[in-house]
Design a protein around this nucleic acid. Structure first.
Length: 304
DNA sequence: CCCGGCGCCTGAGGGC
DNA sequence: TGCCCTCAGGCGCCGG
């Protein structure tokens, strides 16, 4: 599932590919994915150029030259895949993902049955695919935008999310985490998945960070010692950076902006390794339990 | 404020 | 072979 490293990888890929390109048309095939009026699209998106694409927590933000912005959340299975004009597969008018066998819809030519929005740009086509349909795209005026008529601006929308500081920024600190943990009586795993605490951390990187810190995911947040919090702080940042370095984790159907898989799955220590020996050589075995309704992987032997 | 539970979706996988 | 059931999972919302 796309978490901070995956969304960051997509944002960087899209920024490089879309920057300066104009949006010529938009085809919304599943209305719930992008619930917006034709009038607004015509007025603020068609003909606009993409100024830049960036990430805030797990949100993708496309800033447009009209001072409006597209905001998107990939949730579980969303993908933004860009196919250049004249790129591979142009002869047939279609594009295959690199690698994989074209048996599953999310590995087939684009567009496919899970393609819900198609953006035609001057240099190619951007496909929004989403098997589970939990993902969404919104259109918002940016703060500097002209008439917004009571409409929520991008800045107001972001502020309303009450996001934590970016985990890889200086504002994210040990003292921030201590403050956030001290009143929480939930298992620490659930607390670090709270976007108001460590935004961008999801199920995979929460498990990996806790393994890196050798902390049990079941430990109640407010009982963590200062030393625990410090270790966890560095571990969260470490696993997120590693995820970005390896282009994200493709455990299910995550793809980058070119439709390619990430490689971080090859470096995971606990996530998806149920029943396998602990990579710490502690002779333990990776367990899988449920915490807050989510599968949680950890080593019973070395995570205390 | 804190926390648990439900709903949104579809495909995979198990049981029979 | 195929049907039915359950599960996965981010996160908004609601109720205690």
């Amino acid at each position: 599932m796309p978490e901070l490293p995956e969304v960051e990888t997509v944002a960087r890929g899209l920024d490089g590919r879309l920057k300066g390109q104009s949006i010529d048309s938009i085809d919304i095939r599943y209305a719930k994915s992008f619930d917006v009026s034709k009038a607004l699209i015509e007025k603020h998106v068609i003909g606009a150029k993409v100024k830049r694409v960036w990430r805030r927590q797990k949100l993708l933000i496309f800033e447009l030259s009209t001072d409006w912005a597209l905001v998107a959340h990939l949730k579980m299975t969303g993908q933004f895949v860009f196919v250049f004009k004249g790129g591979r597969g142009q002869e047939t008018g279609k594009q295959s993902y690199t690698g994989g066998h074209p048996q599953k819809a999310y590995e087939q030519d684009l567009p496919h049955k899970h393609t819900h929005v198609v953006f035609k740009l001057s240099s190619g086509t951007l496909y929004f695919n989403d098997l589970r349909k939990f993902g969404w795209i919104k259109l918002l005026p940016s703060q500097q935008g002209a008439v917004s008529g009571g409409r929520q601006t991008l800045d107001q929308f972001l502020a309303a999310q009450e996001f934590s500081p970016e985990p890889l920024s200086k504002d994210f600190s040990v003292s921030w985490l201590k403050e956030k943990f001290k009143r929480r009586s939930l298992p620490i795993k659930q607390v670090i998945m709270d976007q108001k605490v460590a935004g961008g951390v999801g199920n995979i990187y929460a498990d990996e960070a806790l393994f890196n810190a050798r902390l049990s995911p079941k430990k109640i947040a407010k009982t963590l010692t200062d030393s625990d919090v410090t270790k966890l702080y560095y571990s969260i940042r470490k696993v997120l950076r590693m995820g970005i370095k390896h282009g994200g984790t493709t455990s299910n159907n995550y793809r980058n902006a070119d439709g390619e898989a990430g490689q971080m799955q090859n470096y995971l220590k606990v996530y998806g390794r149920e029943g396998l020996p602990c990579k710490d050589d502690c002779r333990g075995v990776v367990e899988r339990i449920q915490l807050g309704g989510r599968s949680t992987h950890f080593c019973l032997s070395c995570q205390k």
